[in-house]
Each structure stands twice: as structure tokens, then as C-alpha cells.
Design a protein around this nucleic acid. Structure first.
Length: 864
RNA sequence: GCCGCGAUAGCUCAGUGGUAGAGCGCAUCCUUGGUAAGGCUGAGGUCCAGGGUUCGAAUCCCUGUCGUGGCACCA
């Protein structure tokens, strides 16, 4: 008997799919559509196990939906602009474009080896002129709608990558790629008005019922909508210059206004700067605030410090009540108005500050059950519910009513109004990099910033960029930027900034619906295919990419270019692929293939393959180059075949959790592949006589038939609910059942049942191990490709057993079992139970209080 | 600090009110012309802890412990 040979069969079937053009997506009116998309890869040049898992997961869905009769779109492309290409150019003197396209070629070959059901005719890279020129047209559309603008602003500057970063790209005060401490710089910058959509982006999260709750919460927190009151304090006696209108503050707790203790402003507030001009001590204090570290740990532990400006403001509800104005280091200029009123009794930060500087602390919210005469806050601010007191006209109200009343009074006094404030800032989209989509705008001495007309597109990148030194190679190109102004015809220079690569990825899913269209987006194709029914990728994009894509989709919908207002109806965030780590005694990391793991009973140890030296087995961690705990997919494909690798990453754990790669695990999957093939080979080739005898009686045949129908049901449900690992577990079990009912010596009835079973089985494994499935499908006499075969159905009647074995409990303890027909009435079952001699023996001397029969499940007798 | 998630066999995980399961690993035995293999059989579990609801709890509720992810001086 021939061992299953993936090296022969796998390429053969990939060729068969390509020859048949099996995965071309076609718009078919009257047929339900399904758009499956995995987050497209950055062409780093190497496929890693994370990719294998991501694309295998998507492929299961795509193949399953195809078999279920959907018209499926499952495309692939490349997120190809970005810094790594420029870094490679700088380090190795290669051309970023050539480097990128070579990487794409290599990764495409590796991806194709995975046997994915992808429509490769739609492939594109974001660095293709045919893509980014369309993006330039979209940029102009958004510019025209006022959603793109330019302003001087303080930006995050990454000194290592020499570029501006969006807020979302700064983590703990460091650049998300370089890890360098981010500096604040004042620059002219391009922004997209994502804040215009802050409300929609928050509200529409509720409609994304097939998104993980976790991601929705993260986006909601990121947008950070809060409702409160903006109002101005009047100065007493006289306002400083420029503040005649008062000092504007924002609060979410207007109900606690009578607990006010002081007013605080950020160190970089304009008023603080003005005070510093006259008072050197204030200037020194502000300088001190700026020396604090940027990392989260430093911010957390930073002590609250303040400086009394000597200025006073009057309380809005009592002109005779004066409050001091302090500069405080814990107030942020870029949130709200950069100024607050402090109510220490009900805000921990204000309380810490007030205790330190001996400022008054007056509680105004009385917790339930406390006595107004004795209640006091110690060192812990009270932020819970309660009744307002010590607060004049607000006394006796609950918190929500008091908020409304206070806002009403402020509005009546014309001192301010209820306001909604967001944490979200506008999206800075310009990058000072050459390997990106050029911004289609020129700078003219006469006309200023002038967008190009669409007829002047595309603005192509030059092919002869010099990457010898850091900085923007586009800016220092000798001729590229020199052009003429489309308005006055005079000399002008091109914008040398390029777009953030997150712009590239915020509409690519729409381009996939028609990659040939002259317009950026073909309305007919987009209306047919969008939204993406199932989007799959890493949770690390929960905020950045997924928020930008939602914003751009809404903006394009408002521009009439898209019908959908949300791009991704379903989102699945898969876990990472992890692996054990290994180190020498000296602490150096070791690659898995340098190590031999030895199992001794329950214990495991490891040694170096070279010289047998002891190796320390470390924690299981995400595969990473730095810890050397990676396994190259190519090497696995070579040894075990693609199907075994796919099967293992899919079977190991639930898709949303981390999957631990292990050699033993992939070997197990490989053994399964072989055992499956063995089972198909042991079955006599189908002929009409046997096909006619399908079904029939005989206990084994019936058992196999029932198990088959149950299996179809279980696997179908498992795939539908993204529990691929448990679907595969059922397939493992089922194979064991087939082995227990072998073809050798089987009755015609059993052979028939086996034929039915194997036919279903070959289709059920197709989403997971597509090559093996094709081979099995041929063996079982299937017509055409299993990739085109319909999903097996099941007979619900056959998924249930006719006779049930019911456990019998006495007082909750299992005391025996009885057999009863499925669906037997409680009275009938009770009779069977009470007639059972073993049960009767257990009940001797006891009085039966109650008999509980759960149909087809269990019987419990309560007795004393 | 706030919001999640998890804890079930040695490992990775199913099981969401009704007899505690799978794969891998481990052990015994068989096969030694599927052989960097295959097969039979088996051992192995206070379902994290405590309390509650229930005839009945791994499952529902409460409290706690440990691990893990995200957010965070956001007024």
C-alpha cells in the first residue's frame, strides 16, 4: 500500500484548481454572496506561521461558503508601502521598489503553496501606480469635501524614523516601530477630519454584532466620548490680557460645582505662559513640568505638583466666592480646554493635589446611608452614587438631575453650555517618507496650497531616489518636486510628504471588488460585494487600521462612492502562534532545530544537538526573531506537506486564542493525514452494485450511518461558529469509528454505509486539508473537484439515537442506568425505572418523594 | 485604578444545568516487507478555592486567588 505522498499530490491539485480557474469570484445575481478577507500582508519577504494561521482560517471560511452555494470573493494583495523598504534601501543600498516587488514574488509563491482558494486575478500591491493613483483621486475627493485639511500643529516626531506619527502610533511615549522617545514638534501637517465622524464611529459600534466585544470596547475607549459642561469663570477683580471672556473649563461633573476648591490649568496653557512672562518662578515651575518622563510608568508615579498663580476667579453660582487659579502638572492641554475646576471630595487627582497644598475639601455628594453631619472623605475621593447636599439649589437631587440643573443654570447665565468632548484627535496623515503615496498637491508662491486637478494624475514616484542617508529622499530628489501651478501656471513645488500607509489599507477592500475600474471604486461591484462578510486578522489592529477603515468608509459613503457605512460586517481576531523558547546555559537564545527535546515520563528536558550540552527550556512565547523561537513554514511543508501544517494550526486551539506550535503536534496532524488516506485506500473502488446497497440494515451499517449524519451536523455547526478545532476533533473521532468498522470483511450494507461516510468525509475535510480532500474525493468516485462539490447535508432523524441509555440518579448520585425509546414519556420512563431490580434494591427502605425525568437525558429519584 | 478574558487529564483544549471528553503525550502488549512506521489495551481528573440557587452545578449567581489582554492623571 502506498504511503500518502503530499509532495506529489499537493502541487498536482493546486495546478488543477488553477487550470479550472476554480476560485474566480463572479457576481451572480440571485445567488447569495460572501466576501472573505484576511488582513493583507506586508511583503517582508518571508511567510511566517502567523500568516499560515491567518490565511488558513480565512480559507476554511471561503471554501465552506463556496460549498454552501455562496458566490465567494476571497482576494489577496500587498500592503507594500512603508518604512522597512526604505530601511533596507539605506542598509543594503537596494532600491525599495525592487526590494518590495522581489519580496512580493517570494511571498506570493509561498502563499500559493498553501493551497488557498484565492482569486489571484485580483491581486494588487498598494505600491502599484494603478492603485495609489486611484488613492490620489480619493484624496482629492475628500479634500473637496473638506475632510482633508492642513494646519500647523504640534505633532509627534519620531527622531529615529525621521517622520511624524499619528497619535495611534505612539505607545507609551515611544514610536510604534522604532521604539524611540517621541518628540513634540510644530509642523505644517495634513489631517483628515476623523473627529467629524466621532459620534457615528461610536454609535455605529452597536450595529457591529459580529465583532468581538473587546474590539468594540477598545474603539469606544479610544474615541473617548464624554458628555459634560463647558463654561467660563470670570476673573476677579480684573481679567488678564486676552482672557476678558473668562477662563474656559470642561467638566463631566457639573453636579459637584459647589464642591469647587480651585481652578487648574495645564502647564502649557496660554494663561500659564502669560503668567510665566511676568513671574520667573512660574516659568521655572513650567519648565519643571516638562522634564517629566514620557513613559507610562513615569507618568503613573509622577507626583502631582502645582503653582499658585495668584490669580482669582469667581464661582459661577456665587460672585462673592473666589477660587485660586493653579498651574498643575496633571492637567493635559490637549484634552477638553486644558483647564478644569477641581472638586477634591469627588475626584481622586484633585484630592491628592488639595491635600498636598492644603486646599479646602468640601463633600457635596452624600453616599447612601451616610449622615450629612458626619460624612467626610479621608484620602479617598467618593465617586459613587448619592444625593447632592451643601449645594444650595442642587440640594436633594441625585447626580444626574443635578448635572442637568447645573448645566441649565450655566446656560441661562450665558456662561457656557453642555458639551460633548472626545479623546479622539484628527488623523495626521502626512509622512516625511519617500516610499509612500505622494500627496497630489502643489505649493505655489502665488496661490499657496493648490490641489491638482484629477487630469494631472497620477503623481508617480520617481524611479531614481537616493536612499544613502536618513530623511526624505523625495524632498531631496533634484527634479521631481519642480512643477507648475495648475492655477496660475507659474513655478510651483510638489508636496514632498506622502500618505501614511494606513490610508492605503483603509479602502483596499473596496478596490478588491473591481481592481480594473477606471474610477477608484466601481459602484456596481462595490454594492454587490460589500460589506466584507468576514474579516480576519490580528487584534493589534483593533484601533488603528480598523478605526481608519471605518472612517474612510463613512466618508466615501457620504461622497456617494459607497453604499455601505461599515466596511466589515464580521470581524474575527485570531490568536498568535507561539512556541517554546530555548537558551544555552549562558543565556543565548537557540533556534528549535538546534535543540533536541527528550521526554522522560512526565518530565521533559532538552539538549543541544551538536554536543549534547544541557539546554534550558523557557516560556512559551509569540514566535519572534529576537527569541529565535520561530519555525519556518517552508521547512514544515517540505517534511509534512501543506495539509498537515494547515490542519495542525487549525486544530490546536480555538482560533481566537494563541496556538502553540510543537513538533509533536504537527506530527500528529501528519499521522492523521496518513490514516485518512489509508482508510480511503482500504475501501473497494465504488461500483454501482455497492452504491445500490447503500444504507441497508445491519447494526454496524446503521451505526456508521448515524455517526456520519451526526458528524456532518457537528462539523457544519463548528465551522459556522468558528470552532474549527472542535470540528477537527470530531473528524478525528469519526476516523476512529471507521477504523473500528473496517472495509475488510464488511457486509455489503456496511460497505455502502462506509461509501456514504467517506463521500461526506472527503467534503468535510476539504476546508481544512484541501489537497488530501481532492485525492480522497477521486478515490470515492466523486465528480469533478471537491472544491466545487456541494457541502454534504444530513438527515436530522439520523443524528438522534432510537434507543437512549438514561442514567438513573438517586438523590443526585448515579445508581444505575436503563434503556428507553427516544422520546419516551416521563410516565413510561418512570415505570421502566421503578421496575428495574437494581434500582429497586437501591431504594430499599427509602420513601420516594419525587421522580424527575428529563426526556432522553436522565432520571433522578429523590428519596428519604 | 478601570474594562475584558481565562483557570477541566502531563500538554493543548472541547464540554454553558443532567453518565466528565478529544487530540497529543505516557504505560503494557502485538506487528517488524506501511518502518524517521502501524495497531490493541490501559493508566491518568478535589473540573482554581469558598459560599449560594437547584432534585441535580465543571456549567448559573456572589466572593476571593492566580494568570493574561486592553485602556489610563481624559477632568
Amino acid at each position: 500500500m502506498a504511503r500518502y505522498n503530499p509532495k506529489e499530490t499537493e502541487p498536482k491539485w493546486r495546478k488543477a484548481w488553477a487550470d479550472a480557474d476554480a476560485f474566480r469570484a463572479v457576481m451572480e445575481p440571485g445567488k447569495p454572496k460572501y466576501y472573505v478577507l484576511e488582513m493583507f500582508p506586508y511583503p517582508s519577504g518571508r511567510l511566517h506561521m502567523g500568516h499560515v494561521r491567518n490565511y488558513a482560517l480565512g480559507d476554511v471560511i471561503a471554501r465552506f461558503k463556496r460549498a454552501r452555494g455562496f458566490s465567494v470573493l476571497h482576494p489577496m494583495g500587498w500592503d507594500a508601502f512603508g518604512l522597512p523598504a526604505e530601511n533596507a534601501a539605506m542598509e543594503r543600498g537596494v532600491d525599495p521598489k525592487a526590494w518590495t516587488y522581489e519580496n512580493i514574488a517570494r511571498m506570493r509563491a509561498e502563499l500559493k503553496e498553501l493551497g488557498l482558494s484565492i482569486d489571484w486575478s485580483r491581486e494588487f500591491a498598494t505600491c502599484d501606480l494603478s492603485y495609489y493613483s486611484k488613492q490620489q483621486a480619493l484624496f482629492l475627493d475628500l479634500y473637496e469635501r473638506g475632510l482633508v485639511y492642513r494646519k500647523e500643529g504640534i505633532v509627534n516626531w519620531d527622531p529615529v524614523d525621521q517622520t511624524v506619527l499619528a497619535n495611534e502610533q505612539v505607545e507609551d511615549g515611544r514610536g510604534w516601530r522604532s521604539g524611540a522617545i517621541v518628540e513634540k514638534r510644530k509642523l505644517n501637517q495634513w489631517f483628515m477630519r476623523i473627529t467629524d465622524y466621532a459620534d457615528q464611529l461610536t454609535d455605529d459600534l452597536a450595529s457591529l454584532d459580529r465583532w468581538p466585544e473587546k474590539v468594540r470596547v477598545m474603539q469606544e475607549n479610544w474615541i473617548g466620548r464624554s458628555r459634560g459642561l463647558k463654561f467660563s469663570f470670570d476673573f476677579a477683580p480684573a481679567a488678564p490680557k486676552g482672557f476678558e471672556a473668562g477662563l474656559e473649563v470642561y467638566t463631566t461633573r457639573p453636579d459637584t460645582l459647589y464642591g469647587a476648591s480651585f481652578v487648574g490649568i495645564a502647564a502649557d496653557h496660554p494663561l500659564a505662559e502669560q503668567v510665566a512672562l511676568k513671574d520667573p518662578r512660574a516659568a521655572a515651575f513650567i519648565a519643571e513640568c516638562k522634564t517629566g518622563g514620557a513613559s507610562q510608568a513615569e507618568i503613573d508615579t509622577a507626583e502631582k505638583i502645582g503653582f499658585d498663580t495668584g490669580l482669582k476667579v469667581t464661582h459661577p453660582f456665587d460672585p462673592s466666592w473666589e477660587l485660586p487659579v493653579w498651574i498643575a502638572n496633571f492637567i493635559l492641554m490637549d484634552y477638553g480646554t486644558g483647564a478644569i475646576f477641581a472638586c477634591p471630595a469627588h475626584d481622586q487627582r484633585d484630592l491628592d493635589f488639595s491635600r498636598k497644598y492644603k486646599l479646602p475639601v468640601k463633600p457635596v455628594v452624600l453616599p447612601p446611608g451616610e449622615d450629612a453631619a458626619t460624612f467626610d472623605v479621608g484620602d479617598e475621593a467618593y465617586v459613587g452614587p448619592g444625593v447632592i447636599y451643601n449645594s444650595d439649589f442642587l440640594d436633594g437631587l441625585d447626580i444626574e438631575a443635578a448635572k442637568a440643573a447645573a448645566i441649565g443654570r450655566i446656560e441661562a447665565q450665558n456662561q457656557g453650555e453642555g458639551a460633548t468632548v472626545y479623546r479622539l484627535r484628527d488623523w495626521g496623515v502626512a509622512r516625511q517618507r519617500a516610499w509612500g503615496c505622494p500627496i497630489p498637491v502643489v505649493h505655489c508662491e502665488t496661490d499657496g496650497v493648490v490641489p491638482l486637478p484629477k487630469s494631472a494624475l497620477p503623481v508617480a514616484l520617481p524611479d531614481d531616489l537616493e536612499f544613502g542617508k536618513p530623511g526624505n529622499a523625495l524632498a531631496r530628489h533634484p527634479s521631481w518636486k519642480h512643477t507648475t501651478c495648475p492655477q496660475c501656471g507659474g513655478a510651483a513645488t510638489r508636496e514632498v510628504d506622502t500618505l501614511d500607509t494606513f490610508v492605503d489599507s483603509s479602502w483596499y477592500f473596496a478596490r478588491f471588488t473591481d481592481t480594473e475600474a477606471a474610477q477608484p471604486i466601481d459602484k456596481t461591484a462595490a454594492d454587490y460585494w460589500l460589506p466584507v462578510d468576514q474579516y480576519i486578522g490580528g487584534v493589534e489592529h483593533a484601533v488603528l487600521h480598523l478605526l481608519y477603515a471605518r472612517f474612510v468608509t463613512k466618508a466615501l459613503a457620504d461622497d456617494g462612492q459607497l453604499r455601505v457605512r461599515e466596511p466589515f460586517a464580521g470581524l474575527f481576531t485570531q490568536g498568535m502562534v507561539t512556541h517554546e523558547t530555548y537558551r544555552r546555559q549562558s543565556g543565548e537564545w537557540l533556534e528549535p532545530h538546534e535543540v533536541e527535546v527528550i521526554v522522560e515520563g512526565a518530565a521533559r528536558r532538552a539538549r543541544l544537538l551538536d554536543n549534547g550540552a544541557d539546554v534550558v527550556i523557557g516560556d512559551v512565547e509569540k514566535m519572534s526573531k529576537s527569541k529565535k523561537n520561530t519555525v519556518a513554514p517552508e521547512e514544515i511543508f517540505d517534511v509534512y506537506g501543506v495539509d498537515a501544517a494547515r490542519l495542525f494550526v487549525l486544530s490546536d486551539s480555538p482560533p481566537e486564542r494563541d496556538a502553540m506550535w510543537s513538533n509533536a503536534g504537527v506530527q500528529g496532524a501528519w499521522r492523521f493525514v496518513n490514516r485518512v488516506w489509508e482508510e480511503f485506500e482500504s475501501q473497494p473502488a465504488p461500483n454501482t452494485e455497492e452504491a445500490a446497497s447503500r444504507g441497508g440494515d445491519g447494526e454496524a451499517a446503521t451505526a456508521v450511518r448515524r455517526a456520519t449524519h451526526k458528524l456532518v451536523k457537528q462539523v457544519t455547526e463548528a465551522i459556522d461558529s468558528f470552532r474549527f478545532n472542535s470540528g477537527i476533533a470530531r473528524l478525528y473521532e469519526f476516523l476512529n469509528l471507521l477504523k473500528a468498522n473496517p472495509a475488510k470483511g464488511a457486509s455489503p450494507a456496511l460497505l455502502g454505509a462506509r461509501t456514504e461516510a467517506l463521500s461526506a468525509f472527503s467534503r468535510l475535510i476539504a476546508p481544512f486539508t484541501p489537497h488530501l480532500a481532492e485525492e480522497c474525493w477521486v478515490r470515492v468516485g466523486g465528480e469533478g473537484l471537491v472544491a466545487n462539490a456541494p457541502w454534504p447535508g444530513f438527515d436530522p432523524a439520523l443524528t438522534e439515537d432510537a434507543v437512549r441509555v438514561l442514567p438513573v440518579q438517586v438523590n443526585g448520585k448515579r445508581r444505575g442506568e436503563i434503556s428507553a425509546p427516544a422520546g419516551a414519556s416521563p410516565a413510561d420512563v418512570e415505570k421502566i425505572v421503578l421496575d428495574d431490580p437494581e434500582i429497586a434494591r437501591r431504594l430499599e427502605g427509602l420513601t420516594i418523594r419525587k421522580v424527575i425525568v428529563v426526556q432522553d437525558r436522565i432520571v433522578n429519584i429523590v428519596a428519604a
